[in-house]
Amino acid sequence: MKFSTLLAAGIALAVTATAAFADDISGAGATFPFPVYSKWADAYKKATGVGLNYQSIGSGAGIKQIQAKTVTFGATDIPQKAEDLAKFGLVQWPQVMGGIVPVVNLEGIAAGDLVLDGPTLANIYLGKVKTWDDAAITKLNPSAKLPALPIVVVRRSDGSGTTFNFTTYLSSVSPDFKAAVGAGQAVEWPVGVGAKGNDGVAANVMQTKGAIGYVEYAFAKQNAMVNTDMINSAGKRVKPKLESFAAAASNADWNSAPNFNLVIVNQPGDASWPMTNATFILMYSQPDDKAAAAAALAFFDWSFTNGAKMAEELDYIPMPVSVIAKIKSSAWTTIITK
């Protein structure tokens, strides 16, 4: 039979190909920071020749992958508690901050045409506000032409840090939402269609008339999606943009948060965007592969030093210098790379 020759050819092909490529840094997790990580990775590869294989599979899956040690670092938008970190011997730090925005697909509605407040957004995700011409929405948007279309709610089907921050925000502004759904990386949504990842939510909203979803701002901006404005906790209408994310982020008190365990949604301040959050990196303090851990830290160090501008271009907020210093002096010193 000819299978043996085929098999031999396949093996030969595989072996010759393996040798030609150097090892990349491997990481997996949150889809929220994927655009900025891949931009950094591209620039880093050009600068140093070292690549980063980042699988954006969701925060929940990222935590699982680092626990299973299939990757060098995990990425999550959900800050881990001290006891969970201790249990696995993990170290965590915030890498970059950004904003979550509601995105809609409505004919004749452009970005910034609509405004929503927290309770209305919560009621949409509770299935209480069912159509676009519902009084709750028209009251906030007297001048917008809203169709009598059913609202197609799009939310995550996977374990997600974006969902965690989004539901934390909705729970903080709506007691109903807190009671019926609550906050978590995966919740029992009363309505809606489930999509995988920030990208899946974005793709589904773009594909469905009358849809609403929530995604990291870079996903909305890169794909020219229609985002809404929000009424923040000060009662002011704010637009999602770098300045409003930064205004909210500036309130974050990282120094008094042990292990950087901090959720920064619904911050006070007239200019604060209500759904701002940080995204975190998880690594082992005693990694099996020390060289790989050192390579990963070198990449993060490089992106703290050289990546701020690139992050801002995608409307992520770089970590403040003081916080970076604290990350280097506290979290990173506990990782054994030699």
Binding site: L13, A17, D24, A195, G197, A202, Q222, N223
Partner: peptide, 28 residues
């Protein structure tokens, strides 16, 4: 799947169906 080139049979490897699945579910 794999974003990059990998020919190591003991590691995740890129493949057409799963790549299509990931790419089509993306707004890019």
């Amino acid at each position: 799947s794999n974003q990059f080139w990998s020919a190591n049979l003991l590691k995740p490897m890129a493949n057409l169906p799963v790549t299509i699945n990931n790419f089509i579910n993306n707004p890019d």
